[in-house]
């Protein structure tokens, strides 16, 4: 169960290798979380992470196979986790690919695949989770969206558009779940230093997985529906969102 301060006792991470999700899970385990399931394309690679989580106090830590690009498998994979562990208090939708816009420009199939993973995969997996949450009468779906989806930029609009879709989907799902005990929390990080962004020039207000995780924990304790990380971005993007296109093109060009 989730407690009054937003701490949960069990968590499933879809995209279990994500560094941002990893930092969040560390904090969850540090608080109350005793059951951790990491769902990833290569579950075996997560053994060291599982050992670390057990050492930190997780009574149950396991990894299962999960591919965002195979929506047909999501129902069975996610149901199995819920059936095996009983209540899952939180599910984190953490998978995602950034890709390279220059490559996408010449490889539409690769672009479509990124869209499939980031958006299509999230839609199908989230709907399976929502159904389980409805049945158990509670649950928090934490969706890692991105400021890139708040206003898309010319230099990563494929990625940005997948996050825009994901963000809109998550908000709609959250509204649809009102009254069911389940809720959706949308996280909008800015540039975060992880393997996803390795080698890319950092954007202003770039941050770390630990800082994002701290912001998430604070937001969960306060019952927020949207969490910006770092929090300053909410002010910045309130302005960015309403800039005329021509101005935005200049502001966002790098």
């Amino acid at each position: 169960m989730r407690d009054a301060l937003g701490a949960v006792q069990s968590v499933l991470v879809l995209g279990g290798g994500s560094e941002i999700a990893g930092a969040i899970v560390d904090r969850l385990v540090g608080a109350r979380c005793r059951t951790v399931v990491l769902a990833a394309r290569e579950p075996d690679a997560l053994d060291p992470t599982l050992d670390r989580l057990r050492a930190a106090g997780a009574a149950t830590a396991e990894a299962v196979a999960f591919d965002a690009l195979d929506p047909g498998s999501h129902q069975a994979t996610i149901d199995a986790v819920f059936d095996r562990h009983g209540d899952i208090d939180m599910v984190i939708v953490a998978f995602g690919v950034l890709g390279d816009q220059a490559t996408f420009d010449h490889d539409p199939v690769a672009a479509a695949e990124a869209a499939s993973a980031n958006y299509v995969g999230a839609v199908s997996a989230s709907l399976v989770v929502a159904d389980r949450f409805r049945r158990q009468g509670h649950g928090t779906l934490l969706v890692l969206s991105s400021v890139a989806g708040v206003r898309t930029r010319a230099d990563n609009y494929v990625y940005g558009s997948t996050k825009a879709g994901l963000d809109a989907f998550a908000q709609g799902l959250g509204d649809a779940l009102v009254g069911t005990g389940a809720r959706v929390v949308v996280v909008r990080p800015g540039f975060v230093h992880t393997k996803m962004t390795e080698g890319r020039p950092p954007a202003p207000f770039s941050t770390t997985p630990d800082a994002v995780a701290d912001a998430v924990m604070a937001g969960l304790a306060k019952g927020r529906e949207v969490i910006w990380a770092p929090p300053v971005l909410v002010a910045l993007f309130t302005v960015f969102r309403v800039l005329p296109r021509a101005v935005w093109r200049r502001v966002s060009a790098r």
Partner: peptide
């Protein structure tokens, strides 16, 4: 009749 219920502190409501 599925409704969210919470305690007096209104934290962590769940549906039943």
């Amino acid at each position: 009749h599925i409704t969210e219920v919470s305690g007096w502190g209104r934290t962590a409501p769940t549906a039943a």
